[in-house]
Design a protein around this nucleic acid. Structure first.
Lengths: 407, 407
DNA sequence: ACGCGTTTGTTGTTTGCCACAACGTATACC
DNA sequence: GGTATACGTTGTGGCAAACAACAAACGCGT
């Protein structure tokens, strides 16, 4: 409030412990396996304090200590490794127009089981929620005893209200003000409260934590699904905006008298680099637009029309570079297949329209997690409460999901 | 790092005290005067803890306790007021093309003295630094004894590198990679290390803390000086980007084949709503473009050309709304004079190009601090280290600036 | 094989900060 | 003027991290 980065609220002694325990767990979660010495260095705390924190994580069933993992350098007593116990897990859901993926992801970010299914053709939210639950049953079937479900996260291609997870608008699904969080939570009951996130936001989160943006605190994930959205990480935090709607970069004004966009305006960026525009440029049949990425995989040369799209992409990215000054821009969705074809055109426009200072810092690249960015992001979203307060979250975790879902 | 909002570093017990003391001081600074009971409520700490913190602030010479300030409601013993002692102060500088302002600003945000002067006509950085120091001498002339200078902040109309305060580019001053922080710091010597900020960023900071955006955590300050820049507050923090360059919204691509911009590109937003474009629309003579705001004060009706500018303004703002989802957009600089003339046009375009969800939340308004936003922002920037660590910063504060500047 | 330096884990003690409870005090309200 | 209410003050206690000293485990050189 008063100063940048301070909420204005004081810090309790209890908060200190919670914060440190959560931070320690966060490091373990991110690294999967990390030595206590490394933890000590990263957190800047005393050895004995770290020992206490690790012991508590162990007693909570969140981490195990193990013999040092081979490779060492230099003298001295080898440090004990701390590794994430995958018994604490989340369920992650990637809801797309062209398919549904559910995964069980253990602490440490390991996908332990996954299942995919079709999306009910009419995109009925209730039917989709049923499908999600069906797939969840599959991935928790062989879960070990005493494993604790600590969260459920979903990636949805739409505008999500931060307060309550209402889907304000999901054009590709034809949704408008659909209370999907509520619908799903009724089916999950006491298992866990699901958390919804915009697909691009989750892509950004995942790439920041485990993909092409590890160690990068300023990152833009541009998601080409049918429309174009962005997830933004600034200063290591998600850019959310007042209502959680931030990132709708596809609707930046781009052409004064351009094509009509589904949002009602003319000339949105999305009308030039969205799936329909690209489909037109490469001759992709209308019924395959939903799977444009796969179609683009079969294209090996950029047509002049496609190169125009590439230039539009570059010019729009320049706007993001000038306004947000990211260090990395990750191109996800079908842009993953498009970018290699038009890289030079993108770079050329970026060179022209990007200001020198921010342009020099930015790297445009492909997702480090391939097509799984959103899925991993949904998992990370679900893990967040655990990392914010391990003890508190674990108290409400569900231990027997298998039978709870069966009933 | 691991979770949103956590840097990955642990919290020390010493950190707790520093944080709480700084937060308490931040509240006092923001409010100017606040009761201990209110402090207790806002910080969520115990009464006795607050008593200790306030006592320490008092002994540091940063705050005074005083009798309750009259108006009360309800029963009970009245709470003692804590008020900022303006003896701790900063020097704030607003450097513009058309003039130089230096102010002595006390803790609490009160301007205790101010002085203005012309900018050397050739914009020579060394001459400007000399002018700044001259004006500083004036404002510290009548400073009370034992007053401590805790910081120097400057607003500069340009792109500032976050690391070292190098001015990468200041088109209106004709600067390119000018180490102005270094130049000024050589003149100030041990008095204080000056901190530079982009003018729009500082405008945003000031409006967030003391202007039209008090209590608003997501805000955009759009600054119309000669070019157009933005300062952005997201989630209560400054949007800085990887190198501190974020916010150059004037160079968003806006028209595919627009006018040539000084940045080298064509069709930047700035070419349509920058001072030259507006001057053309209202018939402002070329030599008065630097003081376009004053000229616009004399305009009482929007010409068709001006209304076109208004629509461009609205369309560009819609982009900011869609991407950043702010709750408040503050229009500063000459936009302050322009906006009342073209409000309907701006709103109309915002209506068309803004997505419903973020559009419903945003309010476009004028600065609460009038033309002093940047000056106040510079002061707040200078206060930041004090609020982050009162004891540490005070240890390096300068107590006799008057004679130090004389030498 | 052995000793040495180095690094880390462990243990017990100390320090520092906040919470809490009990009491004193100052106001509003009846 | 009595009472309820809210706040300041004081002393006590608890808790978490720092610290110091020692033990343990390794590399390295002789």
């Amino acid at each position: 409030m008063a100063t940048a980065g301070r909420s204005g609220v004081g810090t309790n002694q209890e908060d200190v412990r919670r914060h440190n325990l959560g931070t320690a767990l966060g490091h373990v979660h991110r690294a999967g396996r990390i030595s206590r010495a490394e933890l000590t260095a990263r957190m800047g705390l005393n050895r004995s304090t770290i020992a206490g924190l690790v012991a508590e994580l162990e007693s909570l069933g969140l981490a195990d200590q193990a013999k040092p993992s081979g490779t060492r350098i230099g003298a001295g007593r080898p440090s004990v490794d701390v590794k994430a116990r995958t018994g604490a897990y989340v369920l992650a859901v990637d809801l797309r127009v062209d398919g549904l993926t559910v995964a069980r992801v253990g602490l440490g970010g390991v996908v332990r089981a996954r299942a995919t299914g079709p999306v009910p053709p009419d995109h009925d939210p209730y039917a989709i929620a049923d499908s999600v639950v069906d797939l969840m049953r599959l991935v928790v079937r062989d879960v070990e005893p005493n494993a604790a479900l600590v969260g459920v996260g979903l990636g949805v291609p739409g505008i999500i209200r931060g307060d309550d997870g209402l889907v304000r608008l999901a054009p590709n699904l034809g949704w408008h003000d659909v209370p999907f969080t509520k619908i799903l939570s009724e089916r999950l009951g006491p298992i866990a409260m699901p958390v919804l996130g915009n697909d691009a936001d989750l892509g950004a989160l995942a790439e920041h934590l485990r993909g092409a943006g590890v160690g990068v605190d300023d990152l833009v994930y541009l998601s080409g699904e049918v429309g174009v959205g962005a997830g933004v990480i600034v200063g290591g935090r998600k850019l959310e905006g007042a209502g959680g709607y931030a990132g709708e970069i596809g609707h930046m004004p781009f052409l004064p008298e351009g094509k009509l966009c589904h949002c009602g305006a003319r000339g949105c960026w999305e009308t030039e680099i969205g799936a329909p525009a690209i489909a037109l440029a490469v001759g992709c049949p209308a019924e395959q637009v939903g799977a444009l990425g796969e179609f683009l995989e079969g294209v090996h040369e950029a047509t002049p029309d496609l190169r125009v799209v590439g230039r539009h992409l570059g010019r729009g990215l320049a706007g993001a570079v000038n306004l947000l000054n990211p260090r990395v821009i990750v191109l996800g969705g079908y842009l993953r297949s498009l970018f290699p074809l038009v890289r030079e055109d993108v770079d050329a426009e970026l060179q022209v329209h990007g200001l020198a200072a921010p342009r020099e810092q930015v790297l445009v690249t492909l997702p480090g997690l391939g097509g799984d960015s959103v899925l991993h992001g949904a998992a990370e979203l679900a893990f967040e409460p655990l990392l914010a307060d391990p003890v508190g979250r674990l108290a409400t975790a569900c231990l027997d999901v298998d039978s709870a879902l069966a009933g």
